[in-house]
């Protein structure tokens, strides 16, 4: 008996920790890591959902096709256009809102919670609302613009720029409050005596914002830049639902706002060419890594960081 309980105790101390972390590693390996790697294999094969018999190695054919695929370059162009129109105003306005929130406020918790309304709203639901807001004939957006003296209503689905602006508006609406809270939490960790010292030097609070607050929260700014790069370059729901027939995944009658994530969906599950869709996913992965690194460096430089 003594031996058994001793063995049990040994097991509890030596092996139990592995039992506790095993579920995470097993599930993550199967459904997270393996698909990422297997995706590389699929990209090198002919893999059609409608014709399994065609299955076979394709070498780099999928990637070669990518280089000359007009749809891909168009989608890449759109993705970047929307990305710039959404990320830059989003992070700047988030900074402004965080600056406003970073005061002694009555109803502080209430204000913070209310900033999360857009974040918590399902993306499909809010996108469907914006669809109505950006209607050509009776949309609220055109009505507001008409109040400012614009007489001919904009057809938001008719061209690249206006559809990008509409989509970027949806993205900005959703993420400004969320990013503002991230900035706010970083702002509140700045030691108080730094402000005291700069006040003695006669810095105004506007100057304090740019000379103290922003440089001090730079790590979080970089973090949000990386996050919005990863999210922004994979934009899917908004462009999908903006289509008058969402199921087509075409992103406008001439692909005005078709993003890469949307094109991957179309190639994979409308054209049923999974091999080519996998190659596109890898290309997108590579692009995200490059852009995230570049953006980090640029933000660091702009924010006055060393190096």
């Amino acid at each position: 008996m003594r031996g058994l309980s001793h063995r049990l105790h040994r097991f509890d101390v030596k092996q139990m920790p592995y039992v506790l972390i095993a579920p995470f590693f097993i599930l993550f390996t199967i459904f997270g890591l393996f698909p990422l790697i297997f995706n590389g294999v699929v990209a090198l094969r002919t893999w059609r959902l409608d014709d399994p018999a065609q299955d076979g190695w394709a070498g780099l054919a999928n990637f070669e096709r990518l280089l000359t695929d007009e749809d891909f370059w168009n989608a890449l162009y759109n993705t970047f256009g929307i990305f710039v129109l959404s990320t830059v105003p989003q992070l700047f306005l988030a900074l402004c809102v965080a600056f406003l929130l970073n005061r002694r406020l009555r109803g502080q918790t209430w204000f913070r919670v209310s900033m999360l309304l857009p974040y918590i709203t399902p993306l499909t639901a809010s996108t469907l609302v914006f669809l109505v807001v950006f209607g050509r004939d009776t949309g609220v957006a055109n009505w507001v613009l008409s109040l400012f003296g614009m007489d001919s209503p904009i057809d938001w689905r008719a061209g690249k720029l206006q559809s990008w602006v509409a989509i970027a508006t949806m993205v900005n609406w959703k993420w400004i409050g969320y990013n503002a809270l991230l900035y706010l939490s970083a702002m509140q960790t700045i030691p108080r005596d730094i402000y005291e010292a700069s006040a003695l030097d006669g810095a105004s609070s506007w100057k304090q914002l740019w000379r103290i607050t922003v440089p001090m929260i730079l790590p979080v700014v970089i973090f949000t830049v990386v996050l919005s790069t990863i999210g922004g370059l994979q934009l899917f729901t908004e462009p999908m639902l903006l289509d008058s027939n969402p199921a087509s995944a075409s992103g406008g009658s001439n692909g005005e706002w078709q993003t890469i994530a949307q094109l991957i969906y179309k190639v994979g599950w409308k054209n049923l060419n999974l091999g080519y869709a996998a190659a596109m996913s890898w290309a997108l992965f590579l692009i995200i890594v490059i852009v995230a690194v570049v953006n980090t460096l640029v933000t660091n430089r702009l924010g006055g960081g060393k190096r």
Partner: peptide, 27 residues
């Protein structure tokens, strides 16, 4: 523009009416 002479950190400075107005608009 005057320096923020109190030397208080922003989070200790009471919000003015413009802050409430702009936050209200954001809401």
């Amino acid at each position: 523009i005057k320096p923020s002479m109190s030397g208080r950190a922003p989070q200790d400075t009471p919000a003015g009416k413009w802050t409430y107005l702009l936050l209200g608009l954001t809401f």
